[in-house]
Design a protein around this nucleic acid. Sequence first.
DNA 1: GATAAGGGCTCCAGTCACTGGAAGGTCAAG
DNA 2: CTTGACCTTCCAGTGACTGGAGCCCTTATC
Lengths: 128, 128
Amino acid sequence: MNIGDAAKRTDIPVKTIRYYEDIGLIRPLRDTNGYRVFRDTDIHKLAFLGRARALGFSIEDCRTLMELYEDETRASADVKRLAQEHLRQIEDKIMQLRSMQATLNDLVHACAGDSRPDCPILRDLASQ
Amino acid sequence: MNIGDAAKRTDIPVKTIRYYEDIGLIRPLRDTNGYRVFRDTDIHKLAFLGRARALGFSIEDCRTLMELYEDETRASADVKRLAQEHLRQIEDKIMQLRSMQATLNDLVHACAGDSRPDCPILRDLASQ
DNA sequence: GATAAGGGCTCCAGTCACTGGAAGGTCAAG
DNA sequence: CTTGACCTTCCAGTGACTGGAGCCCTTATC
């Protein structure tokens, strides 16, 4: 299978697949014409990566997860630890965003949003 | 005031302040020795930027907000529109993260986290 | 007057995870 | 034989900084 088909199959852009090869996440074979050839295992790995990325794991986490996946002697504790740490970071981020959301929401509601220059949003940003 | 004091006063790293000058967000004066000199207005602008960034506005949004702030004939509607659009993006991001959180949470709880290799997290990532 | 510490300066490179584009090779259809 | 859709590599850019090298300036102390 060529890269275009692999991209369609996994919903990962062609450019991204090439990038994943560049950084050593996948190792597709090469045809005599230089084209990448994707086997089922490569497609499987790409799909794995796609799902891990969709859960917000960093590329380095993905690399580790793939290594763990391929290591038959792994301990599930290692996977769980990684996922828990990531979950904690997501929760932190959500709290941060919720705090921004709350402030912004107040400000937006306090602002008339008309043609006059007076604006509580700017007043807040400029406050000492 | 030199850059170090400006940094302390506004809680913005020295490096970041220099970067803000680079991209034209602030225009501190220069002393004869080449050192940047920060007036009260510069400090005020930096603090404004700090608060806007803390609310998650992009640098380009910050630039626009500062222009609006300095334009006495602005319409508050323009500020509100910007803030509302940003609020929408924050809400999108929160929803995305909550969805990740939910999935990850399920997976983490399903995983024994012991020395055995069997792991629902990896099984999910590898699922067809 | 020498020196050391603690500022400041510029410029370059790296971060993360792609993404766009240029310049060119390959392949199947008409 | 040409067209168009693929594919290739390589280089540069994104956002918002951050780190480091190599240098200059100022102030205090010996």
